[in-house]
Write a protein that binds this DNA or RNA. Structure first.
Lengths: 145, 145
DNA sequence: TTGTGTGCAAAGGGTTTGCATTAAT
DNA sequence: ATTAATGCAAACCCTTTGCACACAA
């Protein structure tokens, strides 16, 4: 939040009530919401706030490196916004409840190194998604049978 | 191709000239084309063949497990169709020339196992994308300076 | 007061669908 | 002869954009 205000000021930007609200809501959502999902919540507290404002704010945050975006493999082909720490991290998505768990692993560097040695490319970033059932959903599907 | 015909017949489907052409073109394209890219080529040989037919054929192939789809991180948010061997594999994308290199690594299993042990999830599949510069584009950017 | 950000409506790009017609079986 | 698949156009969904007004600085 401080971060956001600082960046706004340093480029002649303005802190509007809309930007503040969108940013706050985004940080409270621990999942990786779509623009529409952010809008749905934000809109309850500010009924006039328009979806296009949500997009514009999200894009500005993206450009500033305060959020990043992802596409998970899902039916509706929508972009998801990730407001957590900007360092590289990866995602597990539960295919039953859609819950997202973030993770990291030193093996990822091994993969990058191995691939670099094999092919001579320069790897700049990696994005890993794991899909499956979270512990809760496994339990539930067992119980249900 | 045989595979495709077999599946068509086994479910009362028909092998049309359009399906044959789309499938052939798709397999000759070693990259991971968008529907529009497939259409552009296919359309040269069959000017009446409509984009919606490309989509329908691609979706049918996807459903049959003969192609899979991906989203790479790129400006235009388009789906890419992958006709290579259906076994799990992963992708490096050159951010300069868009070239795609497929790869695999035993470390991927380590990542899955590690994450499973840590969290109790059941991992069903993984999708890894690496981004960077391929060897050619590195050489070119050096030469260009 | 100044000009950035907003609300709104309309356009945009990628993908899907309904329907009359064509063509594989 | 049947009925699945196609061509076409229109609809769809997600996202962006143009413009007049509002409001943070």
């Amino acid at each position: 939040m401080r971060e956001m205000i600082a960046r706004l000021h340093s480029q002649g930007g303005r802190l509007t009530s809309q930007r503040r609200l969108i940013f706050e809501v985004l940080q409270e959502m621990d999942s990786h919401p779509t623009a529409e999902e952010v809008y749905a919540i934000v809109n309850q507290q500010a009924p006039n706030l328009h979806l296009s404002t949500v997009y514009r704010t999200l894009r500005w945050l993206e450009q500033e490196g305060l959020v990043s975006t992802r596409h998970f493999q899902e039916k509706r082909r929508t972009e998801r916004f990730d407001s957590s720490h900007p360092a590289e991290h990866h995602h597990f998505v539960c295919t039953a409840c859609q819950r997202v768990i973030e993770f990291n692993s030193p093996y990822i560097d091994h993969i990058k190194e191995e691939f670099t040695l094999d092919t001579g490319v320069r790897v700049e970033r990696a994005s890993i998604e794991l899909y499956g059932l979270c512990a809760d959903c496994q339990a539930q599907s067992k119980g249900g049978l």
